[in-house]
Amino acid sequence: MKDLNDYFDPGFTVDDILGDSKTSTYVNDAYYALLRADMAEWSGIGTPLTEAERQAHEALILHENWLLDRRNFEQWYQLYTRECSYWIPAAHDLPGNPQFDPQSHVTIAFDDRRRMGDRIVWLRTGVAYSQLPPSYTLHMSTGFVRVPTGRPNEVKIRSQFLLQEMRSSNPVQTLSGWMGHVFKQEDGRWKIDRKLVSLLDGQRGHHNLTYLI
């Protein structure tokens, strides 16, 4: 894979996000159909990654975890394609549960690139009291497998995760589940095009889920 440093424009700040992707033009019936097709494919039999796949894809997921745990949202944003999504269904037992369909159900998070930008700008306002003081997180991912897909030029990687979160005056919380990352080439690099976070307890209540998973 390309050196991870190639992903990041060192001068890219939250001010650049302010002006980026201010319209929402690609979420439509076809996009929701794509996400339903993805969900069906996530139940496929995964194969452990080859060394090349580890270098290209697992390394990117591990670095994504690292960036989120450092609250480096501006670099995190640069790992994603121009027409990306970050999606956490408010449903459990995926991919089998029909309650997942985001076209007809609200989610814990359904961010296109614009809303991902909104989320970062919101976190950076300095007055988001739910993140003052901030959450410190530890992401741990394991069980990486490549899942077959019928879509050419895309790579689907499934993994299991544990996430611990600590915020001042609050006990440490643990979240767990599986993730699906769909990778696509853009500007000569593999980038994350669609990320799905399937929480073990997505249907239940959560305390202050304002940090990024």
Binding site: V27, Q103, S104, V106, T107, F110, R119, Y129, N208
Partner: peptide
């Protein structure tokens, strides 16, 4: 399409509004 948009809109306040109230 209106209901698909309503789903996305109804994620806005629970994401960017209500959590700050709950913290308070």
């Amino acid at each position: 399409e209106v209901n698909a948009l309503r789903m996305r809109l109804q994620e806005d306040f629970p994401s960017f509004g209500e959590p700050d109230d709950l913290a308070n």
